[in-house]
């Protein structure tokens, strides 16, 4: 099978790679682009360890083909910290010990970020259902949910401050 040239944007950078039509995006990220933050836990979309976003939508990259990335925007765990500053979710996962072995952590962080972008003030139940596609076998999810709750609070405060500043400028 001949390889296809794929032009895509990953974590804000223009990237080109070639891959056969039947290769998963996960495989392309890990084996062609050196982005091994996304993990393969099952290869069947059941564990969420390979979570990335495709045009802002949360996907299991093991269920997406590499060629489907053509002309789209992908974000992976490697793009979550900006300019060396950890995202509040990343900070809080460490602070709250939301990881033990850490293999599921990239997937959880991506999924949680998508959740908080859509719903800045989720209930505990909403968090639990939003993260139900990501398996963790170490923590019992307790500290993960607490880390997401703490991050939601922080992010809301940051937004509030931004809002105030904007208002201040207008007046």
């Amino acid at each position: 099978m001949a390889a296809h040239l794929v032009s895509t944007t990953i974590n804000g950078d223009a990237v080109e790679f070639a891959c056969p039509a039947d290769e998963s995006l996960l495989s392309a990220l890990r084996n062609r682009l050196g982005l091994s933050g996304a993990k393969e836990g099952c290869g069947t979309g059941d564990c969420g360890a390979c979570s990335v976003t495709l045009d802002g939508r949360l996907v299991c990259s093991c269920l997406v083909l590499g060629v489907e990335a053509n002309g789209r925007k992908i974000t992976t765990i490697e793009g979550m910290a900006e300019n060396g500053v950890l995202h509040p979710l990343q900070e809080n996962f460490i602070e709250y010990a939301a990881l033990q072995c850490g293999i599921c952590t990239p997937g959880f962080l991506i999924a949680a970020k998508v959740l908080l972008e859509r719903n800045p003030n989720p209930t505990e139940t909403e968090i639990r259902y939003a993260l139900a596609g990501n398996l963790c076998r170490c923590t019992g999810y307790d500290k993960i949910v607490r880390a997401v709750q703490a991050s939601a609070r922080e992010l809301r405060q940051i937004e509030k401050r931004k809002g105030r500043k904007k208002k201040g400028k207008k007046s």
């Binding site: 996304a38 992976t76 490697e78 950890l86 990343q90 460490i94 962080l109």
Partner: peptide, 9 residues
């Protein structure tokens, strides 16, 4: 090892 594990490194 926290930072390595939340950044995919």
């Amino acid at each position: 090892d926290g930072i390595d594990k939340v950044t995919g490194r």
